[in-house]
């Protein structure tokens, strides 16, 4: 059901369009009905100057692919990447959080370069993020800025998955129990000290692999069943 609805939405958006973004969405369509264990996935994480997609800007993007393997998923670090984006004005207060200082950004890409890079790298991959709506919101708004068109980006949210799982087990969620580190701990994953986009994307990728592993009969599930719209 979910799958049909998703496909319908995407077809609707692509209809009549023939630009970079619709190719992107076309590629998306071809993977969402694959089993989750063989669908190309890409964990992402963004660092932003603030929390408002309309006002604040993306500073850096980390991407970490997740590939099918025997386990049944694995993460090749060779393809893990991170870019910095040149922003208008200064990083501001959030610099303290992610340790990115202005001069780091001097060698960075412009926003349109960055979006081009993002589209190219993640094309044909289903996006995975922790607390994904936020990151996706930023991406959509930035894509709008560069391409002048709003598009739908289907994604998998590890936070939502974890929430469902926990709710199935307990009825009450403790505060903070859905934070990335807290989720990771439940799967016996180590705590990472760094908090740049790349490390967080990796942390999210590992969490997702662990989540998939903890589900029985994974091979029968298609990617679409994980996707929130």
């Amino acid at each position: 059901m979910n799958e049909l609805w998703l496909k319908a939405r995407l077809y609707y958006e692509i209809f009549g369009q023939s630009d970079l973004l619709s190719e992107y969405q076309q590629a998306y369509l071809s993977v969402i009905n694959k089993p989750i264990t063989s669908a190309p996935l890409m964990a992402i994480d963004l660092e932003m100057t603030g929390l408002d997609p309309q006002q604040d800007q993306i500073i850096s993007i980390g991407i970490v692919p997740i590939e099918p393997s025997l386990m049944p998923l694995s993460i090749p670090l060779a393809k893990a990447q991170q870019i910095m984006i040149n922003i208008d004005g200064s990083v501001g207060q959030s610099a303290a959080v992610h340790g990115i200082v202005d001069h780091h950004l001097s060698s960075a890409l412009t926003l349109s370069q960055a979006m081009e890079w993002f589209v190219e790298k993640t094309k044909g991959h289903i996006l995975v993020a922790h607390h994904a709506p936020m990151d996706i919101g930023f991406l959509q708004s930035h894509l709008y800025k560069t391409n002048g068109r709003a598009i739908k980006l289907p994604f998998i949210d590890t936070l939502a998955l974890e929430k469902q799982r926990l709710l199935r087990q307990h009825d009450v969620l403790k505060e903070g129990s859905l934070r990335l580190d807290a989720c990771r701990q439940r799967y016996g994953l180590p705590t990472y000290s760094g908090h740049d986009a790349l490390t967080d994307a990796l942390a999210c990728a590992e969490l997702f692999v662990a989540q998939v592993n903890s589900i029985g009969d994974i091979n029968t599930l298609s990617a679409a069943e994980f996707i929130s719209i």
């Binding site: 025997l70 386990m71 998923l73 694995s74 670090l77 060779a78 662990a210 592993n213």
Partner: peptide
């Protein structure tokens, strides 16, 4: 070396590491 690593997760429920 670090760039060439891949990461895998082995859940207790699958009992044995599948070796290729």
């Amino acid at each position: 070396c670090c760039q060439q690593l891949t990461i895998g997760y082995y859940s207790k429920t699958s009992k044995v590491v599948p070796l290729d």
